[in-house]
Design a protein around this nucleic acid. Structure first.
Lengths: 111, 111, 111, 111
DNA sequence: TTTT
DNA sequence: TTTT
């Protein structure tokens, strides 16, 4: 693993329950949707909150754990890598998707 | 700034010269394309190199610096945040793009 | 600031209430003691928890905030830099101390 | 491994050749001394460079690699964890030492 | 779609 | 000295 060259860290809340998928009968993949809320004051001194939604995927042993331990609304800390993949959509056009492939996650003491 | 909640770190090489754009006559934006190479051994013991291309944007004072100091092939270290935005493409369809908004960059002693 | 060259990230719990100190009548410094708990299985399959205690210091505007918002037992996420300093102890011998100078902190939803 | 709870990232130069030590006939430990240079402008507009020296240790398979690949002056990027240990010095007094236990390292294209 |  |  090379987290030195490609590393993402996020702290935020899950917008939905984890979505667990099975592949080839035994491989697990869990999808998470995580919101990070950035709060700052603009030029006029008004407090602005900017929300970013991130698509996360968890593979392997961690995928099952994520599916079992996490639920909508949970505050989590994750470390992973940025992954860009292309696919052909239903109209035959090449599309790009960016995901964070999660290596480690942690549910805060919160919920 | 809240690099605690949303932070990306990449070490890689630039695939092209920086692309500097002017906005409103005085605002600068610099686009970078960065490759990260992840190397590992597969099940058969063969060495596999996986390359990911990342779209980076640099705003403000740093944008000019990036345009001046960096060039194609340079090895750089960056820290930034993941930013997802949507836009309407030329066919009127909503698309999503993910970029890394760079806060800090560093050219290694290399090139 | 150069968090690219020197960056520490910790997630843990405070072992004591923040210790706020005043300097020169108006400068604030807050000291925190943070435990990180690393849990793993040893050769015999026994679960081992290893606790590290870290000395943190918060300067400036953040120092007051840390003193007001945080208390013993809180779960916090921090980003800072490693700082090594030397001093002369009461016996006239040169000593070294390592601290994490905190740039950002976040109390989790927990407590 | 739990790099989520305790993670250090440094970019700097080695102040000496790696020091490789053998334990129990087959275990390797490599010590590195790394300088990080932080440059900023003070109140008077003068450019100040502040150098921090960090003690790093590399264990296991990586220890041999570090000993072979790295030398004095090299620019390196590392990821590791903060580790605090106590020991009894030659005068029988308890002392504390902080080290960065390196998980991953990377020599830049530089030297 | 979350959270404060 | 914390927490699970």
């Amino acid at each position: 693993m090379n987290s030195l060259k490609n590393s993402v860290r996020l702290v935020g809340n899950l917008g939905m329950d984890p979505e667990v998928k099975m592949f080839d009968g035994n491989k697990k993949l869990t999808k998470l949707s995580l919101a990070t809320n950035d709060s700052y004051k603009n030029d006029k001194g008004e407090r602005i909150t900017e929300t970013q939604w991130h698509n996360l995927v968890v593979w392997g042993a961690q995928a099952g754990l994520a599916g079992d331990m996490l639920k909508k609304g949970d505050e989590v800390v994750i470390e992973g890598k940025l992954s860009n993949r292309s696919y052909i959509d239903k109209d035959g056009i090449k599309r790009y998707a960016t995901e964070v492939v999660v290596h480690e996650f942690l549910k805060t003491a919160g919920k």
